[in-house]
Computed example of a mutant assay.
Amino acid sequence: MNELQTILSDSVNGLLGERVTKNLIQSAEDGVWPADLWNELEANGLTRVLAPEAQGGAGGTWSDAAIVLKAAGRHVAPLPLAEALLAHWLLAEAGIAAPEGVLTVMEGDFTLSGDRLSGTAPRVPWGRQAAHGVALTGGAVMLVPLDGATIAPDINVAREPRDMVTLNNVPVKSMPVAMQKDALRLYGALIRACQMAGALDYLTAQSVAYANERTQFGKPIGKFQAIQQQLAVLATQAAAAGIAADYACASLDKGDASFEVAVAKIRADDASSIATSIAHQVHGAIGFTYEHGLHFATRRLWSWRAEFGAGAEWAERLGRETISRGADALWPYVTAR
């Protein structure tokens, strides 16, 4: 871990570890925006890790950003930290100055006429709290003010805001960028894979701790071989997802990482299905009670699986790419990564 990564780790874990409690998450789910915590994150530059220093950012890499993204997942932060980090990076890549206020990202069906944007973006993360959205369409990054948009509130399984945003000739700033047409979905899948890896670390730590505390037949349930085996599977799944996410971020720092991002999202989705089941089995009924913190992570994992493309979608994409290259090219393509 380099010096910047150490600073980022201490900063984000210090802020989120101290402040993101069950009560705070309860407040966020009741529609109360934790503005004080958000302001602290912004003041510490955690939303601008990927932005150049000349634009007020940290000038970090995606490997640096992975530290923040995984911490956001580990502490189940009820904030659009991951979305803002991606939005700032897209704006920096396009040379558009980032405005003050909360940023989010938007996937949707848009039509750009001059500098006016129309269309609809479903399931926008934290749309109601955002001052601006960042979209990518027609080979251009667009900064979209949301004060002129129509926003219909909605939520995901974790009760995080996922709002319908409708635009009607909203003036935007746009700049062309050299990115593939589905770049927003690709990078969105990467931030979710990192968040999921962090949440899986949380599940592992909580499950091991609970198994060592909960007693049955006169000894901790963690002493029983069946529980130990399940915990070993859980830890393996979490580790695999974390390694895949880290490798995808490192690959993106070197250039194109479409293959690695797809693998990371597939691996995180698969791991989440297995790990959430094990974690709730180890905890028993207590893991489902609102007073316990486990379900705050598991419900987010279930929600994040479907966002920016489910694992099945990315697996199909890799399958089609493999078929198009031909059977003889498969092994060289995989081992060259």
Rank of each mutant, 00 (worst) to 15 (best):
L294D: 04
F217W: 06
K173F: 11
V105D: 07
A135G: 10
T298S: 14
E83F: 05
E29P: 05
V102K: 08
L24R: 10
G133N: 12
L117R: 12
S251N: 02
H132Q: 07
D36Y: 10
G138V: 14
Q229M: 10
I278G: 08
A193T: 03
L41T: 11
S258C: 01
I266P: 05
D182E: 13
A97Q: 13
A306R: 08
A199S: 13
P220E: 00
A87R: 04
S303E: 13
L112S: 13
I243F: 01
A241F: 02
E160T: 04
Q237G: 08
T215C: 02
R325M: 12
V170H: 06
W126V: 03
D147L: 09
W33D: 15
R128F: 03
D269H: 07
D115H: 12
W89K: 07
A209W: 04
A66R: 04
A211H: 00
R214A: 09
G138S: 12
G311P: 11
D10A: 14
R123T: 09
D269A: 10
L136G: 03
I155P: 00
P176R: 14
A310G: 15
S113K: 15
P52F: 03
L85A: 06
T111Y: 14
R320M: 11
A92E: 09
L301M: 06
K219C: 00
G114L: 10
L231M: 05
I67H: 04
A297F: 03
A72W: 04
L103W: 05
A94K: 09
R128W: 05
T120S: 15
Y290P: 11
G17V: 12
V49T: 03
D10S: 10
R19F: 10
G218I: 02
L318C: 06
T120V: 15
A271D: 07
M142T: 12
V263R: 02
M1N: 04
E316I: 14
A58W: 04
A297Y: 05
P145L: 05
G188H: 08
F259S: 03
P220G: 05
L50T: 00
A84R: 07
G95P: 13
N44Y: 12
A58N: 01
H283E: 02
R325E: 09
A199H: 05
R74T: 02
V334E: 08
E160H: 08
G56T: 06
D182H: 09
V76M: 12
I274H: 08
T150Y: 14
I274P: 10
P145Q: 11
A130F: 05
I25Y: 11
L4V: 04
Q5P: 01
N39T: 13
A183I: 01
S113M: 15
G45W: 02
A329S: 12
S118L: 13
L167H: 07
A94H: 09
L252K: 08
L91F: 09
F308H: 12
